[in-house]
Amino acid sequence: MIELRNVTKRFPSGSGGVHTALRDLTMAVGRGEFVAVVGPTGCGKSTALSLVSGLEPPSMGTVSIGGEPVTGIPDGIGYMFQSDAVMPWRSVVDNVAAGPRYRGATRSAARAEAREWVQRVGLGGFEGYYPHQLSGGMRKRVALAQTLVNAPSILLMDEPFSALDVQTRGLMQDELLRLWSGTEAAVIFVTHDLEEAIALADRVVVMTTGPATVKASFEVALERPRDVEEVRMTPEFLAIYREIWQSLKEEVEKTRGRGVGRVA
């Protein structure tokens, strides 16, 4: 479904030179597969999402979706950012209806579809509210509905829940798994939280310190459906965590040696 082959991405640096964010990165994601990507801060994980989405072209190598090279923003892409993309001047239902309207649906059809998704993300009764009237977790639910109402075949998520408190984050993780299940959407989920990566994903990809490439890929052999809070307490989860952390820890320590101290 998604393939990055021998991809390198360079950007102009502030000093007039060139910064290499990714180098010779190869990664594939199958239809219906949920892949979480972890790695040190600044290693280029978000850049990889930009390449898949078509927002940035690779400097070298190829990015393809369904066997076709990505030359612009492909159809069927859903993208959730760390910051909310809700429009403050629109109500909840009109925020969610924006995607169907853009695709050509009539106003009444778009709002009917949006109301259904507002219900599905647990915001029934808040259709007429505006973003400033909602909590952070509720705005994330709106953003999730905005994304999924378009029935994306590929879902790109860039630390979408990182700003939430622990309890709300757990609820949103469960909500995401419930709504994604059975859609056959391929997911790339970037996170700085290894526990979150394991609880959600079928596979966890560890990236090296920048310029990044794939260091290792780990299958997450935990049964679905999952309750993300309960699965964290199982011996199987802890065993997978220890295995992946051994690989990730080396890259984190390299980054700390450069003066950066957070996993991302």
Rank of each mutant, 00 (worst) to 15 (best):
residue 189 F to V: 12
residue 163 A to I: 06
residue 210 G to E: 12
residue 139 R to Q: 08
residue 228 V to F: 03
residue 241 Y to V: 01
residue 18 V to H: 01
residue 9 K to S: 07
residue 231 V to M: 05
residue 28 A to V: 09
residue 112 A to F: 00
residue 112 A to M: 04
residue 175 E to F: 07
residue 188 I to C: 06
residue 111 R to Q: 08
residue 43 C to I: 02
residue 222 L to E: 05
residue 135 S to I: 09
residue 180 W to F: 09
residue 156 L to H: 12
residue 79 Y to W: 11
residue 229 E to M: 09
residue 107 R to H: 00
residue 220 V to E: 11
residue 237 F to V: 08
residue 252 V to D: 00
residue 137 G to D: 09
residue 156 L to W: 12
residue 163 A to C: 03
residue 221 A to N: 14
residue 254 K to Y: 00
residue 4 L to Y: 06
residue 50 S to P: 00
residue 201 A to S: 15
residue 47 T to F: 07
residue 53 S to I: 07
residue 93 V to A: 14
residue 125 G to V: 00
residue 94 D to I: 03
residue 261 G to S: 13
residue 55 L to V: 13
residue 123 L to I: 11
residue 88 P to V: 02
residue 24 D to Q: 12
residue 260 V to H: 14
residue 90 R to K: 15
residue 3 E to I: 00
residue 242 R to A: 14
residue 68 E to C: 01
residue 168 T to G: 10
residue 149 V to D: 04
residue 182 G to Y: 03
residue 235 P to L: 10
residue 57 P to A: 13
residue 163 A to K: 13
residue 56 E to C: 04
residue 100 P to C: 09
residue 178 R to N: 11
residue 188 I to K: 03
residue 178 R to K: 15
residue 192 H to T: 06
residue 199 A to N: 10
residue 7 V to I: 13
residue 163 A to H: 10
residue 21 A to K: 06
residue 200 L to Y: 11
residue 144 L to P: 08
residue 227 D to M: 08
residue 207 M to E: 02
residue 180 W to Q: 10
residue 244 I to C: 13
residue 93 V to H: 00
residue 263 V to Y: 06
residue 97 A to W: 02
residue 71 T to S: 13
residue 42 G to T: 07
residue 175 E to M: 15
residue 264 A to C: 10
residue 137 G to R: 05
residue 103 R to A: 15
residue 245 W to P: 03
residue 45 K to S: 02
residue 169 R to D: 09
residue 20 T to R: 04
residue 188 I to D: 04
residue 119 Q to S: 10
residue 248 L to R: 07
residue 158 D to Q: 11
residue 195 E to S: 14
residue 232 R to W: 11
residue 84 D to N: 05
residue 25 L to M: 14
residue 167 Q to E: 12
residue 12 P to Q: 02
residue 58 P to A: 08
residue 259 G to Y: 13
residue 127 E to D: 09
residue 79 Y to M: 15
residue 224 R to S: 10
residue 61 G to R: 07
residue 39 G to H: 06
residue 169 R to Q: 11
residue 234 T to F: 04
residue 88 P to M: 10
residue 109 A to Y: 01
